[in-house]
Design a protein around this nucleic acid. Structure first.
Lengths: 195, 195
DNA sequence: CCATTCACACAACAACTGTTATGACTATTA
DNA sequence: TAATAGTCATAACAGTTGTTGTGTGAATGG
């Protein structure tokens, strides 16, 4: 059975959500054509129309992960140092949704490191994330909240700290409840002010 | 053909190195029975004698990764803050060997997060790593190099920073040459002294 | 010296993977 | 209205995976 143009765009959204559900349940390691098709209640014949090859599906999933993460970020929160802290806090697995999202990120690294082209795309995504933090750092410096210093280096260090804390929290959830994560983050942000 | 007891222990070392070579080349995602057997110049019938099931092979590989990483660590380097910095520096992908080792670690997370039992073992390994850093932090405090504060929290923050920097360096090697990694680490360690 | 046990090769299995070919059905266009 | 193009199901393919069973030859122990 064919579909109208409106139905087709609705189908595209269905495909996106099916990919997301598979990623949430099994990560990138469990991202298979048949798993997505089954989650969609369809067969692989449908998927071949949207993704000619497996690589296309993986590339789409990588991009979907990036977009879904961006959507989950709150737009603006305070200014100066408060905005930087809010941005870093948004990256931590403090909620159930953020936990699954971060789990998918971790599983994506194995896939990205195996394929140079996909890895380059992934690296570019992290670079834009660092740029976003860099502007927040520069704004905080202008605001007088942070001492002088290369904003890019400070942003990179902050992203490193957040990234590493995320991994440890994912591997040991009981040892890193949200309260401890926020406390560690607040301590780190506080240490930035004393240059 | 059978083997003597001495040959059998040599064979055990051969199996270990075959597993390691497979991990180095393809990560945990490419760790298959046949790949290890082929690397060994043997068939899967040999492996079933050492690993009854795939899970056993994965668990062994996880433990092997931990032991190989521990062997790569230099025993003692300075005291006080210098020892802490040396320990953190050993964790970064500054050399080719450290890079492949860290790449394997990243690929292991996908596997570990998928299996709760394996994930618990992995979390325990990171916990002992944090304990090791905690004692170094406490020693540095006694030495007068670090201001007072919970040594466990400081060690956890330091491990988070190192872990996150490692990931960014693996994804973007050109943006994070060894010189920049060490500079960022030195800046971080320096920030610890001004409590 | 003979029986047992060990260490392995070889082969096959069922399940799963990505990919492709074929055909049917519907919407669009001429 | 007739022809075309788009949208999907169905089925099959070749390859890879973990696992299992059978057989064989050498070392070991009584």
């Amino acid at each position: 059975m064919a579909r109208t143009k409106g139905d087709h765009e609705a189908r595209r959204r269905d495909v996106s959500e099916a990919v997301w559900r598979v990623l949430s349940a099994h990560g990138f390691g469990g991202l298979t054509m048949r798993a997505v098709a089954a989650e969609l209640g369809a067969t692989t014949g449908l998927l071949t129309h949207y993704f000619a090859t497996k690589r296309d599906l993986v590339a789409y999933a990588l991009d979907l992960l990036d977009r879904r993460t961006a959507e989950g970020r709150r737009p603006y929160e305070g200014e100066g140092l408060a905005a930087l802290r809010a941005a870093l806090r948004d990256a931590l697995p403090l909620t159930a949704e953020a936990t699954t999202s971060n789990r998918i990120w971790v599983s994506s690294w194995d896939t990205a490191l195996a394929d140079p082209a996909l890895g380059a795309d992934h690296a570019a995504r992290y670079a834009t994330g660092r740029d976003r933090l860099t502007t927040l750092v520069a704004a905080a410096q202008l605001h007088g909240d942070l001492p002088p210093g290369d904003p890019a280096d400070i942003a990179t260090a902050a992203q490193s700290f957040t990234l590493g804390l995320t991994i440890q929290a994912l591997l040991a959830p009981t040892a890193f409840p949200p309260s401890r994560q926020t406390r560690l983050l607040d301590d780190y942000v506080a240490s930035l002010t004393t240059g």
